[in-house]
Nucleic acid binder design. Sequence first.
DNA 1: ATATAACGTCACTAAGTGGTGACAAAATTA
DNA 2: TAATTTTGTCACCACTTAGTGACGTTATAT
Lengths: 200, 200
Amino acid sequence: MELKETEKRLLEAVSHIVENDGFTKIGVNRIANQAGCDKVLIYRYFGGLDGLLVEWAKRHDYYSFAYSEFIDTIKRAKDGNIKQIVKDVFMCQLNYLKDNVLMQELLVWELSGHSSFKGIIEERERIGYKLQEELNKFLDRDSDNNMSIAIIISAINYIVLFTRQYHKINGIDFSNPEAWERMEAMISKYVDFIFDNNNL
Amino acid sequence: MELKETEKRLLEAVSHIVENDGFTKIGVNRIANQAGCDKVLIYRYFGGLDGLLVEWAKRHDYYSFAYSEFIDTIKRAKDGNIKQIVKDVFMCQLNYLKDNVLMQELLVWELSGHSSFKGIIEERERIGYKLQEELNKFLDRDSDNNMSIAIIISAINYIVLFTRQYHKINGIDFSNPEAWERMEAMISKYVDFIFDNNNL
DNA sequence: ATATAACGTCACTAAGTGGTGACAAAATTA
DNA sequence: TAATTTTGTCACCACTTAGTGACGTTATAT
């Protein structure tokens, strides 16, 4: 089913507000004003603010659709290049998040505890888990690979979210591109560590 | 200079609100109501909401004062036990954050981009950096130790903040205490990795 | 052409927001 | 005792919030 013109405008209005003022400033009045229509349409079309935001989030949740691609890539992988593929996935995630303000705001909003997004997070988790399952075929079952990956993903997310405001972590200035290269290098080293521990 | 009774009540009111409803629900009206006094006193004593929150944050920022202790411990460390000390610091940080809702909310609030806390974050960063400098005396200068540590700290923060709401990351259920043990084990492994790479 | 449903506008409510000026009581100071 | 400063109360401001009911307008189908 296609989107009506007004529905599109409302969704775009959400993007506009989130991008400029962040999620904390969101609200029916502001959205309707930005979209140039009446707020009553938010209730009619989306059942309210929550419904609209969920619909918006579905369309901006990188992980949910990107992971689907990665799964195919990993399925076609061989022992020889699996390490590089995993590195690519991480770099892809890092660079996407770094450049995408909407996704950043979405993650922060989730951390703030707005339960409207629970469905989306569960879906994301489901796909992420499938990805991990595929990956585990290449890895030693004795090692806690899920935890290794979880730690790296979490680190990426936190560092991106934190440094967009405060620049420095542990003496490293992330407003300097060189810092991100160092981070990529370290992640790469960690991946080697994970795989080497599995004797590949 | 001592705190007046009313100032204490205001600060406690902030804690109460943050603990129960999170930072998003904070505001002068609610705080004054909770403290059982007039909101005008917030402006008189703290210069406004921001001033009050900064004062509150200073008193609840774990890192700022805990790191000071760690520095002494590390200064007294020897090659033999430095690895264990670093592990202890991480575990301490993990468990403190895990049990402390106020600190969790503070971190999320910072990520949401409320610049009032910039001063506090800079102070925290300054002390964290000193800690790292002490640690670097034990480590190989060729390896990017600051980055290794930054990644682990970030991972700890993100995982704690995320799982208090959504429980699962990458197939791991953090509502199960066993998951946290796995995490501690993995961090321990990483620390070994960092130090072994430095040929100690 | 007419009935029906979809689409959109407007005015309104009730409550909450941050913030201020006027004023009273109490404690300190001279 | 008298003057002054501190501490606190109250009423009010203009504005924003989420949400609703009533009303037109337009398009679609019969």
